[in-house]
Design a protein around this nucleic acid. Sequence first.
RNA 1: GCGGGUGUGGCGGAACUGGCAGACGCGCUAGACUUAGGAUCUAGUUCUUAGGAGUGCAGGUUCAAUUCCUGUCACCCGCACCA
Length: 802
Amino acid sequence: MITMIYNHKEIEQKWQKHWYDNERFKAIDFSDKPKYYALVEFPYPSGQGMHVGHIRAYSSLEIVARKRRMEGYNVLFPIGFDAFGLPTENYAIKTGIHPRVVTDTNIKVFTNQLKQAGFSFDFDRVVDTTDEEYYKWTQWIFVQMFKRGLAYRDKTYINFCPSCKVVLSNEESQGGKCDRCDTVVVQKEKDVWFLKITDHAERLLQGLKELDTLPRITIEQENWIGKSVGAHVDFKVKDTDESLMVFTTRPDTLFGSTFMVIAPEHSIIERQKDKINNLDEIYQYKENAKLKTEFERVELAKDKTGVKIDGLVAINPVNNKEIPIFVADYVMIGYGTGAIMAVPGHDTRDYEFATKYNLEIIEVISGGDITKEAYTDSYEGILVNSGLINGLKVPEAKIKIIKFLEEKNIGKEAVNFKMKDWAFNRQRYWGEPIPIIHCPKCGMVHVPEEDLPVVLPVVEKFEPSDEGESPLSTIEEFINTTCPQCGGPAKRETDTMPQWAGSSWYFLRYIDPRNTEKLADFDKLKYWLQVDWYNGGMEHVTRHVIYSRFWHQFLYDIGVVPTEEPYKRRTAQGLILGPDGDKMSKSKGNIVNPYDIIGVYGADTLRLYILFIGDYEQSTPWNENGVKGARRFLDKLARLEDKVTDEINDNYQPILHKTIKMVSADIENVKFNTAIAKLMTLVNELTKENHIFKEDFEMLLKIVNPFAPHITEELWQRLGHKDDMVNAEWPQYNENKMIESTIEMVVSINGKVRDKIRLPLDTPKEEVISIATSTDRIKELTSGKEIRKIIVVPNKLVNIVI
RNA sequence: GCGGGUGUGGCGGAACUGGCAGACGCGCUAGACUUAGGAUCUAGUUCUUAGGAGUGCAGGUUCAAUUCCUGUCACCCGCACCA
């Protein structure tokens, strides 16, 4: 046989054409084989094309998918495009090219690039969130939510980006800055669409228990949902018929509450304005607070400001003491009830405020020194100055006081969540139109299901107005319609959905991508769900994963999907940083283009290197030099072909079978870097042999195949195989062949390695000791010294203590 | 401030329930083959006054610690006046 010349370009093109033309990765509905659904987060098809991060994100499950096929599974490994969103729209505004055209071009580029990397996606099931046939169902889900009161409209303070002119969710304005452009976000009162995700808060929390994932992923979601348990307590407002309700996690400190604080936006101010003597001052304070952005409110957190409401006094319900009420912006209208009972002795913020405004500080939990600082310990402290709960520890005090509050009907146990309802509209063009019609007679009416989709009209101008109205609001033909209920003239909603909408259910559409009757056939959903393994970015854990779980739970409730939770297992890849160790970004100029690597070294090399670079779940800097090592490995592998014979060779059996075992396990445990290291070790060992048994070489090709499918397929074919490697069987390791007849044991003195001895496996302890203590080196080092103890770890080491 | 994570050679990184620290790769050094080598192959490569020392730092438990415990420092990520 003539030695193969490893021409990666030729080989890779040949096999890619072969695989994709023959639909080698097609998922079969209702096949008899066990199913496996491997899902990767679908890309946003940007104009820059794919970067190394994409390749890394897909490589993990690409390995798993190829392995599963060889293990006999019917694998669904789909891909699609999350194509609505701002970058495309901004590009369209800049160039005047319609977003539809931009999107189609980018999708073509991406598809091509995905194929050049040799990914084994089922390209027959590609979905595109901007396709009418797709977003019809996104709108349909919205309508179902609307019908059940889970989509509603409300006036509220929202995060608004003055630069993008767009309403942002809390998730998109983390740190008080716009997710997209970093502009400081301002607060604006606006009519906004919400999805009532808070209805699912508890279920979203509970569902996490069944999700197989890293602890930090669970913890991040838990923090985001932000459950806290405490109590609601009513404080009567003197000389009025109303009371202020507060949420507190520390009802045990109720006796120490010496004043109250309400958010500047609290509605009681309007209701009781006749009684308030310093209304102007309070309005002024409110105005100032509004001018402060969320960001500034946090930044200025150190310096607490506030205004005492002159004219309103609250009554502490447990001791009937009259206490003052303040307005201060350190209390948020959006969390809890927008009002707090301040316990300066045991809350650092209240302490600061009380010190500044000279308010009474009462110690109700002993153990600290409240003349110096607030004492916040909630486990060890003992209650004092607290009537019926004196002498109790905090946890018991909480239980007793809540019982007391409930008996007296002045409060009750309560749960509060940090998570807020999901602000669900954008004043943008390139998104799914919200399928609602505003009728002057009937109010808000949803577009009937049979009239969906509400198609995005073709427009000339994509920019929102300066007031932040959607560009759709200027199109008369779009806005003006008739009411589906009364038939009278009515107007369409002109806002569109946020980018998170289409991605909240795309994994369902893969299961039945061309269904025109339903979002997906129920039996097919039953066959394929749940997603067995979902991989994506860490940055999507708190948003996309929670959002899509919410949608899925909703669809389960209305009988559209067969499982309550969508995902069985979730992993997240670490970032690839620039060669300089910084996050890759255009402005830093440290972006690596994967297609340069494919051109020079080939896709197999790129795939291998991107997984070898470091722990998959950890961030790692890119290093161009390291790529060569991956290529050398493939060169060595190809050269092994010359050594293949029909003659059995027992020399390398233990390492071959150990490698099969370890590589299989490493893949399942997301340890691709060590899996590749072990493959390299094996190839290095085989290089030393003068002949390799054909079947052994085939086993090697099989375990390398998921990582480097093109070259292994070529070598496989050259061995005379007619069928593709997708249909090859993943090799089984043989425990018996892993056993080595002799093993090396370490002999150490006081824990320091002094000698090594080679012994038959499972040599009895006594024999090991006598051999270990009789070597020249050990004799020399122990002569004249008393051996106090000898520890033997079977087949590993002997430690002599002197 | 709260929550989570990470600190190991010149570099990226290995090390299962405590058991040979530095697998594998890059880089580097020497040699071989070459007109040539930025190709390939072979050998070596933690430091070192050669006795030892060594996994951010200081202690502790143990026959034995990168691994367990206590304290501490640095960096990264997430949340953040969350009541």
